[in-house]
Design a protein around this nucleic acid. Structure first.
Length: 829
RNA sequence: GCCCGGGUGGCGGAAUAGGUAUACGCACGACACUUAAAAUGUCGCGGCCGCAAGGCCUUGCGGGUUCGAGUCCCGCCCCGGGCACCA
């Protein structure tokens, strides 16, 4: 068994001391630079897991270091407390969601405190309390006034057995995640937020997000999915009607040999009317059902029917058949496409299976000038030069897109346009444990927003949650029945609640003014703290939460509440915590409970280990032995300080050690200053927390090795004091409790966490010699010590004089020599 | 299929601007202390050859650029993630 120390007593002692002094409280102070360090707030599921420990340890290291380095740090925490798990727990165990949630919050708060994470608890926010969700409602109403919130009928996933709406994530393999019944599609009135109004800006804003991981920006970019192209209207032959298509390749339009209309397109009834109505209608009915089923499943075999109707290509006047098919989506573009089989692989596949003609209209650049009369053997999707396109022949694809777009505009049958894949955000949930949407329906006045003075619309506590019915609020007459704010007549409340992503889209503003009662937050507080300087959290939120938050910030800016457009200029995507090759999860049974580790090794060792074992943005594989090593390291540091407490008896004013105190002393002084420099940079600039810990370990190793020699001279004892004092301070963001204890034991007054971060002295950190490597023909043959910054010519001379180098050259003169100061001499023989 | 990451000892990982590959930690081995074990300490620890000095090889694979490549370029392989009929 490893030697031990009473970490439990030490940790408790300092957690109390910090709390008593409210040492983590943040107040606006214009005299210091602010630093807003934020970790994604947790869902209060019951217990802290290792992912939380990692997330909050990373944030705490940075927040503590910034604070010691002189920043005015805001480091808050709260609870993402609304949502399905509480409701499911209620159904399962019969506890009220509120009771369950608040109990979990209490427990998890205690756990976070036991980890020594330094939060400003005065700013704690809990989204399930009316003083928070009131402002969800307020923001919603402002959006409603501006047309950013609206209601429309849309398809939702519906579990017929549970009789409730399911989010897309709750549909597993086409079935309900709870009862496995096949999920149906149902058309319902739903509330939407008009995020698409900000699509362009959300994309353009990426330019300001230089400190985001590239792959996260890429994911968001794909999600937003901007496409430029053109809308073009084809005539419906024999009528005055038109079918509009969207295309990104208007340059290929003369190769359109058919048109495809989505089975869900509103024009379908007209297209199928006629002698074949029964046959076509049956196909449509079956296909629509299938398309809804596989909405989240992916690609399936292409299937279609020829309607017998024709469309007129406005560019050529050509009449082409109109098909219905299962591969054209209704909710992207116009729900109809032109089929250009020669230059689109999906159209090609479709045309091949139905014998539709394929006509080349783009010559690949390497085949310019050839004739393209017959059917091509394969599809060509790249750009090229137009052929078989009448007056547009000879244009490059790029020019043709422009000119044909203009042509369509001039003739009035189309326009150049940009569309997005991003959809408006459906926020309606037919659930209890969420923010009630503050809207009233009156027979006379229609849809009426709840007046601000009536906010919050509180969630009623008394409610039956059985899981068997639809929306629990809908069945609660006392909630539903109300009066119209306009006419005073009888009216009904909206019973949908909001998606919980609404709560998390602006909570970082609320931390700035957590008890504000007139607005969601005070603009001057937001001005003082935002943007968030560093946002840390799991990459699983790369798309939804991080886009919604960016959207909300822009909306709040347009409300005039903030002048910030991007809430998180720096996002650190934390890697997963895994064990035995997969993410820790209940179903895998590979969970390590932080409480258990805390009891055996203490918070400092756990924090140190989780930081040390891998860089923050990479996956972290749990391995108990490594934890043991970090614990031993702490024990060694403590022992080293305790054995040398006498060197701290020197007056505080003792001269700072300089070079010239003997071999050991100058080595240790130099290493100390180098370590301070490296740790400061690793935490504050590079965010490589694991290497910061390594370098502290190195300093500790050297100090231990030299301690006997150091103790023998006054200069040595000064060096020892410097090294130990620095180790304590450098360690304090990582292992704050032990560091505080040692700080006190070495005779310091006040809290270490509020004292100054050490500064390095560049002159003392400087190496007196540089190791110069000598390569011959690319291979290292020898090395020597040289004075720093020795000029290249002298390095060259010294290198060539080395016996091993002489031998390697075999007496012949070098053909070429390259020297780099302080680094190497490279000789070509 | 498309778009991102990533591949370095037995393991987690380091190498910040193309310049000493394998820092730090774990595991392992030898030794010291011990009646013994644990703990602790000291030393060793990429592979191959060699008594040694030393030599050769080594960052997924194959090429290339360069005095010099883990790092840059081209082509593959494997692993992880995201999107997935987006016209």
């Amino acid at each position: 068994m490893t030697e031990t120390y009473d970490f439990a007593a030490i940790e408790q002692k300092w957690q109390c001391a910090w709390e008593e002094e409210r040492a983590f409280r943040a107040e606006i102070d214009p005299s210091r630079p602010k630093y807003y360090c934020l970790e994604m707030y947790p869902y209060p599921s019951g217990r802290i897991h290792m992912g939380h420990v990692r997330n909050y340890s990373i944030g705490d290291v940075i927040a503590r270091q910034k604070r010691m380095a002189g920043a005015n740090v805001l480091h808050p925490i709260g609870w993402d407390a609304l949502g399905m798990p509480a409701e499911n727990a209620a159904i399962k165990h019969g506890t009220h969601p509120k009771t369950w949630t608040l109990g979990n919050v209490d427990h998890m708060r205690t756990q976070l405190k036991r980890l020594g994470i330094g939060y400003d608890w005065d700013r704690e926010v809990n989204t399930c309390l009316p003083d928070y969700y009131k402002w969800n409602q307020w923001i919603f109403l402002r959006m409603l006034e501006r047309g950013l919130a609206y209601r429309k009928e849309s398809w939702v996933n519906w579990c017929p057995q549970c009789r409730t709406v399911l989010a897309n994530e709750q549909v597993v393999g086409g079935g309900c995640w709870r009862c496995e019944a096949p999920v149906a599609q149902k058309k319902m009135e739903q509330w939407f937020l008009r995020i698409t109004a900000y699509a362009e800006e959300l994309l353009a804003g990426h330019a300001a997000l230089r400190k985001w991981p590239e792959h996260v920006l890429q994911m968001q970019k794909n999600w937003i999915g901007r496409s430029t192209g053109a809308h073009v209207r084809f005539g419906l032959d024999g009528t005055s009607k038109e079918i509009e298509v969207f295309t990104t390749r208007i340059d290929t339009i003369c190769g359109a040999t058919f048109l495809v209309v989505s089975a869900e397109h509103p024009i379908v009834p007209e297209l199928v009317a006629g002698p074949r109505a029964q046959e076509l209608g049956a196909w449509v009915e079956r296909t629509v059902a299938e398309m809804r089923q596989r909405r989240d499943v992916g690609e399936t075999e292409k299937d279609g029917v020829d309607t017998g109707r024709k469309a007129v290509n406005p560019f050529t006047g050509e009449r082409v058949p109109i098909w219905l098919a299962n591969y054209v989506l209704m909710d992207y573009g116009t729900g109809a496409i032109m089929g250009v089989p020669a230059h689109d692989s999906r159209d090609f596949e479709f045309a091949r299976s139905y014998g539709i003609p394929v006509r080349t209209v783009i010559a690949p650049p390497d085949r310019a000038g050839e004739r393209f009369d017959g059917e091509p053997a394969e599809v060509y999707e790249g750009p090229g030069v137009l052929v078989n396109s009448g007056p547009f022949d000879g244009l490059t694809s790029e020019r043709a897109m422009d000119e044909m777009g203009k042509h369509a505009e001039d003739k009035g049958f189309g326009r150049r346009s940009t569309i997005f894949r991003l959809r408006d955000w459906g926020i309606s949930r037919q659930r209890y444990w969420g923010t009630p949407i503050p809207v009233i329906y009156c027979r006379r006045d229609g849809l009426v927003g709840v007046p601000d003075e009536d906010l919050p619309v509180e969630l009623p506590f008394e409610v039956k949650l059985t899981g068997e019915e639809g929306s629990p609020l809908e069945r609660l007459e006392s909630f539903v029945r109300t009066t119209c704010p306009k006419c005073g007549g009888p009216a009904r409340r909206e019973t949908d609640t909001m998606d919980t992503f609404v709560d998390s889209s602006w909570y970082f503003f609320r931390y700035c003014s957590p008890r504000e009662t007139a607005l969601p937050f005070r603009p001057e507080d937001a001005k003082a703290w935002l943007p968030v300087d560093l946002y840390i959290g799991g990459v699983e939120h790369a798309i939804l939460h991080l886009i919604y938050s960016r959207f909300f910030t822009k909306v709040l800016r347009d409300f005039g509440l903030t002048d910030v457009s991007e809430p998180f200029p720096h996002y650190l995507a934390q890697g997963m915590v895994t064990k035995d090759g997969s993410a820790m999860s209940k179903s895998k049974g590979n969970i390590v409970d932080p409480d258990e580790i805390l009891a055996r090794y203490g918070a400092d060792a756990l924090r140190l280990f989780i930081i040390f074992a891998s860089p923050p943005d990479k996956e972290f594989a749990w391995a108990e032995e490594g934890l043991e090593g970090c614990y031993r390291f702490l024990v060694r540091v403590r022992a080293l300080v305790h054995e040398n407490l006498d060197v701290f008896a020197a007056p505080e004013a003792a001269p700072a050690p300089t070079a010239g105190g003997g071999e050991a002393a100058s080595r240790v002084v130099k290493k100390t200053h180098q370590t301070i420099r490296k740790v400061t940079e690793d935490i504050g600039v590079r965010f490589h927390l694991n290497t910061a810990v390594s370098s502290i370990m190195e300093l500790c190793n050297l100090t231990r090795k030299e301690r006997d020699a150091l103790r023998e001279t006054p200069a040595g004892r000064d060096a020892l004091r410097l090294a130990l004092g620095s180790i304590i301070r450098l360690l304090s963001p990582f292992a704050p409790h032990l560091a505080e204890e040692l700080w006190q034991r070495t005779g310091h007054q006040g809290l270490l966490m509020l004292s100054a971060w050490p500064a390095h002295d560049a002159a003392l950190a400087r190496e007196e010699t540089a190791t110069v490597v000598v390569q011959v023909n690319g291979k290292v043959r020898d090395r020597f010590e040289a004075a720093p910054d020795l000029p290249e010519a002298e390095l060259e001379a010294a290198a060539l004089a080395l016996p091993k180098i002489q031998a390697a050259l075999g007496g012949k003169p070098p053909r070429k020599v390259i020297s780099v100061r302080n680094k190497l001499v490279s000789i070509v023989g």
